[in-house]
């Protein structure tokens, strides 16, 4: 039994050595979480477990029972989030493969640090590899969100 995005899922027919990434995609059909390196290097499989940012490819699914798992589907529901809109506006989405992991990581970063510096953004997103953009536009997008959330707070929205 896995608790994903606030729902309980019975996982059937899984082999005991399967990674959380594999179970999310192949057993539960949650395709937003991407898989690439399966070594924890690329961050495309990033999810939150009990609010902690981790690579789902390095989590043994059998051991993730009774923990709160949040995938990109749990963060971006019907309408795009501010982070997603900013990534589009800044031109930070090209092939898009790294984007779900980046969105999860960026949301987590902004929760913990509402006004991150550029070096903080670079360090906090260092586990998410993007081969298209060169990162400049991604950092730009995160900064845009930080600014717009701050001004929203100022006017009491």
């Amino acid at each position: 039994m896995l608790h994903v995005n606030g729902e309980a899922f019975e996982v059937r027919d899984a082999a005991v050595g399967e990674s959380l990434l594999f179970v999310l995609r192949e057993r539960l059909g949650l395709m937003g979480t991407k898989g690439a390196c399966e070594q924890g290097e690329c961050g495309s499989c990033t999810v939150l477990i009990d609010e902690q940012l981790v690579c789902s490819c390095l989590v043994l699914a059998a051991g993730a029972q009774r923990q709160r798992i949040t995938t990109i589907e749990g963060i971006a529901t019907e309408t795009p989030t501010d982070v997603q809109r900013a990534l589009v506006d800044a031109g930070a989405v090209q092939c898009g493969f790294c984007t779900p992991g980046l969105v999860v990581a960026a949301h987590s970063l902004l929760e913990r640090s509402p006004r991150p510096s550029e070096s903080e953004i670079r360090e906090e997103l260092s586990g998410n590899v993007c081969r298209c953009t060169g990162y400049g536009r991604i950092i730009d997008a995160v900064q845009r969100v930080a600014v717009s959330r701050a001004s929203a707070r100022e006017v009491g929205l």
Partner: peptide, 9 residues
């Protein structure tokens, strides 16, 4: 050590 994702695990 690694990245934030690695350090959390």
């Amino acid at each position: 050590v690694g990245s934030p994702q690695i350090r959390h695990a």
